[in-house]
Design a protein around this nucleic acid. Sequence first.
DNA 1: CGGCTTCTTGAGTAAGTTCAATCCAGGTGG
DNA 2: CCACCTGGATTGAACTTACTCAAGAAGCCG
Lengths: 252, 252
Amino acid sequence: MSTAASAIAHIASIPPQAYAHAMPSGRWSEIAKGTASMSLNGEAASPAQVVAALGTPVSFSRNSEIFGDDQLAEHVYVVTTGVVRICKLMGDGRRQIETFCLPGDAFGWETGDRYRFSAEAVSECRLVRVKRSVLFSRAGAEPELACALWALSFAELQRAQEHLLLLGRKTAQERVGSFLLDLARRAGTTTASNVTELQLAMSRQDMADFLGLTIETVSRTLTCLEEQGTISLPSSRRVQLRDRSALRRLDS
Amino acid sequence: MSTAASAIAHIASIPPQAYAHAMPSGRWSEIAKGTASMSLNGEAASPAQVVAALGTPVSFSRNSEIFGDDQLAEHVYVVTTGVVRICKLMGDGRRQIETFCLPGDAFGWETGDRYRFSAEAVSECRLVRVKRSVLFSRAGAEPELACALWALSFAELQRAQEHLLLLGRKTAQERVGSFLLDLARRAGTTTASNVTELQLAMSRQDMADFLGLTIETVSRTLTCLEEQGTISLPSSRRVQLRDRSALRRLDS
DNA sequence: CGGCTTCTTGAGTAAGTTCAATCCAGGTGG
DNA sequence: CCACCTGGATTGAACTTACTCAAGAAGCCG
């Protein structure tokens, strides 16, 4: 299979959008009206697909680094399968995970010439890598692409803003509850018995660094939610949401 | 003075950029190269000015609401003078201030049709109000405007990402220190004796809700920094940065 | 079955919160 | 001019939540 053909296969498999509710993107003129759609070779396409069409597929293995902090920023990435963590490190080793990128999410946006954080594969993952120079030089001539860039980075902004409230003002229970609900919305599968189940790609340490807690607090909080009957934990990486209203109460 | 003429006066007084270091914006084709500039009637212009050129000036008095959470999102705003706080509220009254907008900053970005937070004037302030419908319908035809929109909302994203690290992983001292340094960079004035002085437009409560702390902790932390000789507090709303290296150590 | 990593649990501690007094600056009115 | 009032800021003491340190348990893979 040629690189181009394989890229097309990748693009087709990019899901509609992990954050669809926050992404009524499309042509600029349509954002104002709230109706919006994009196209790619005549087919309807999400912003992620419009961007991914300009790149080539790449794969990364579990825990490998996609790019490092302060590295020259040459590419933007769109996730096809798997999970990526975007993190910032402090001098003494404290780590904050800014976000987990799921299929359909894009990362690596910069206005400067260097990345301001690092990106690592949480699980095996397949991405589409797009040259920034290609993206930006084309955006000038293609309003639809420009709009897609805006929509994708704007989705990041919304996510970050929600996360500020979580980190600034929520309790440990609320943080874990919000996290589970968010993951369920973006990547949950609902079983026959109407129970939503989650496969956690990330470790407890990753969750802790995302939620601004310690690994022990995350573990204890999950146990506590299980004792309350809000969730069940068939195994440490699998979570079933038993009482969504209780979780939603935690989400505020 | 006609509205148009007064708008032009406003635009001219919008500062280069509060977050200049994060905004090498300009034409799309130039972002990739790292060189970039915009123009307005032949004059060089910042993204904020390009956007503000399409709006009309408005004023708000201290503590008045500019728009509320869940309100119909019809406008984007650019700050000319004064300070605006962008906040999210939880059901029980807990508040998180996402950001303080200073002259040159823009706020009110949305992809949906409603605001997802409220905006209030911290001090008397003058803004330029731009219709979203105008902005977006023009962006399709004017790549330079599209680029300005992207640059402005991207500046917000970078600020939010920095703030995530602060809220997730920093101690009270580090939070207050980072906050003071950030304000100094964006709005500080350096006196003859080479001491940077800040005028705080916001109350201790605002600072607390921005930093994810309580009002008492903010107050105690400032007192503590003063006792260490890092800052001095001629009055509760004026801060002098005495030992910047100590502050930078806190900023990590 | 070791030998590894990851996760859980427990006990003690510390950072920051809560509640409750002041304190202080800046208007207002006598 | 000064007493009074008011909203914001500071300080103190007790308390709580989440952290730290330490020990086990549970998976996972050779």
